[in-house]
Each structure stands twice: as C-alpha cells, then as structure tokens.
Amino acid sequence: EAHAAIDTFTKYLDIDEDFATVLVEEGFSTLEELAYVPMKELLEIEGLDEPTVEALRERAKNALATIAQ
C-alpha cells in the first residue's frame, strides 16, 4: 500500500519520491487526505511551510477533480 501511495503522489502531485515517502511515513496514503486534512496537520511535517502546503493541497484537489472526470 505504501508503494502505491508513493506512486500516486509522485504522479499526481508532481513531487519526487523522497517527498512522497515522507508524506506516507507521516501517515498520508490518499490524495483525499492531503486535499482535506486540516492544514495544521501538514504544517507539523518538518520542512513544510504554508506556501508549500497550500500548493500541495491545491494539486491534490486538482488531481481528484481530474480523476473524477
């Protein structure tokens, strides 16, 4: 499951495998979680700032909209 989540994140969020791995290690496994989890939870991840989190959430929401079509 972790590998599938990493693949999904790299494909749809335009991030590298290392960043995707950090997200999975922090407990995220779906685009929905990244799109809708409280921003505070993402900001608790070391190295993430508000602009990065906002961009990540926007990419996740856009990916979900694209997949739904």
Results as ranks from 00 to 15, higher is better:
Y12V: 05
M39I: 13
N62Q: 15
M39Y: 08
T66W: 11
K40S: 13
D49R: 03
A60K: 00
T8K: 08
R59Q: 11
K40I: 10
T8P: 02
R59C: 07
E41V: 15
H3S: 12
D14G: 15
E46I: 15
A20W: 02
L34V: 09
I45F: 04
A65C: 08
I15Y: 01
V24P: 00
R59I: 07
A2G: 10
S29C: 08
A55W: 13
E1K: 11
K61L: 13
E17R: 15
L31G: 00
E17Q: 11
A4L: 10
Q69F: 04
T66Q: 13
E33W: 06
A65L: 14
S29T: 15
L23N: 00
D18S: 13
L48K: 02
L34D: 01
E25Y: 13
E17G: 07
Y12T: 03
F9V: 00
K61G: 04
E25T: 13
L56F: 03
K11Q: 08
G27K: 02
N62E: 13
A55K: 10
K40D: 10
D7V: 11
T52G: 08
L48H: 02
I15K: 00
D49S: 07
E25H: 14
E58S: 06
E50D: 06
T10E: 03
K61W: 06
P51F: 13
A55G: 07
A55L: 13
I45A: 03
P38S: 13
M39H: 07
G47M: 06
S29A: 09
A20I: 03
V24R: 06
L43M: 11
D14I: 06
A68H: 13
K11E: 06
D14R: 07
E32I: 08
T21A: 13
A20N: 01
A60I: 07
L13H: 01
I15N: 01
E26I: 15
M39F: 08
L34N: 00
L43Y: 07
E41H: 13
K61V: 09
F9R: 00
D49T: 08
G27R: 02
E26C: 11
E32L: 10
A35D: 01
Q69N: 11
G47S: 06
V24Y: 14
D14W: 09
Y12E: 04
E58I: 09
E54P: 00
E58D: 08
V53C: 08
S29H: 14
A20K: 01
E46T: 15
E58H: 06
T10W: 04
Q69P: 06
L64I: 10
E17F: 11
A2C: 07
E33C: 12
L42F: 07
F19R: 04
T30H: 04
L13D: 02
A65T: 08
E25A: 14
F9P: 00
Y36D: 07
T21I: 11
G47R: 07
A63H: 06
L56P: 00
V37G: 15
E58F: 06
F9G: 00
E17H: 12
F28V: 05
D18F: 12
I6L: 07
D7E: 14
Y12S: 03
A2M: 15
A35Y: 08
L13Y: 00
I45V: 07
E32R: 08
D14T: 05
A5D: 03
L23H: 00
E26L: 15
I45L: 08
A35K: 02
K11T: 09
I45M: 05
L43R: 05
L64K: 01
T66F: 13
E54S: 11
V53D: 01
A65N: 10
E54F: 08
T52R: 08
D16A: 08
P38A: 10
D18R: 13
K40T: 12
A20R: 01
E50F: 12
P51V: 13
M39S: 08
L64A: 02
E32N: 06
M39W: 06
V22G: 04
F28N: 01
V37F: 10
T52P: 00
E33P: 01
P38K: 06
N62F: 10
E33T: 08
A35H: 02
E58C: 06
A5L: 10
Y36C: 07
S29N: 11
V37W: 11
A4Q: 14
E54A: 12
S29R: 15
E25D: 10
K11G: 04
V24W: 15
V37E: 06
P51S: 13
K40M: 09
T21W: 15
I67Q: 07
I67R: 05
A4D: 12
A60R: 00
I67F: 07
V24G: 02
M39N: 07
E50H: 09
Y36E: 09
L31M: 04
T8D: 06
A4Y: 11
S29D: 06
E41S: 09
T10S: 06
G27T: 01
F19Y: 06
L42Q: 03
E44H: 14
T52Q: 09
K61P: 02
L64Y: 03
K11V: 06
M39Q: 07
V53M: 10
E33A: 15
D7I: 14
T10I: 15
A2R: 15
A4C: 09
I45H: 04
E26F: 15
K40R: 11
R57D: 01
S29G: 07
A2W: 15
G47Q: 05
S29L: 15
A5H: 07
R57C: 04
E1F: 10
R59T: 08
F19H: 03
D16T: 12
H3E: 10
Q69S: 10
E46P: 14
L34S: 00
P38W: 05
D14S: 08
E58T: 09
L42G: 04
E17K: 15
T8A: 11
E17P: 10
I45P: 01
G27W: 02
F9N: 01
E33S: 14
D7C: 10
D16F: 03
T30S: 10
G47L: 05
K40P: 07
A5R: 05
T52L: 10
Q69E: 09
L56Y: 01
L23V: 01
M39D: 06
E32S: 07
T30I: 03
T66Y: 11
L48N: 01
D16V: 04
E44K: 15
L31Y: 01
K11H: 09
E25G: 11
T21L: 14
A65V: 11
A20G: 02
E25M: 15
Q69H: 10
E1Y: 10
Y12K: 02
A4H: 12
D7K: 15
I67K: 06
D14N: 10
E1R: 05
P38Y: 06
F19I: 10
R57L: 11
T10Q: 09
Q69W: 03
R59E: 05
S29F: 15
E54C: 09
H3P: 07
T21Y: 11
E58N: 08
T52H: 05
A5V: 11
F28G: 00
D16W: 04
T30P: 00
E58L: 09
A65P: 03
K40G: 10
A63N: 02
T30A: 04
E44V: 12
E54V: 14
K11C: 07
L13A: 01
E26P: 01
E1C: 09
P38G: 08
D7S: 13
L56K: 00
L56Q: 00
D18W: 14
G47H: 05
A55E: 10
V37L: 12
F28D: 00
D18M: 11
T10P: 01
I67M: 09
R57M: 08
H3V: 11
P51E: 14
A65I: 10
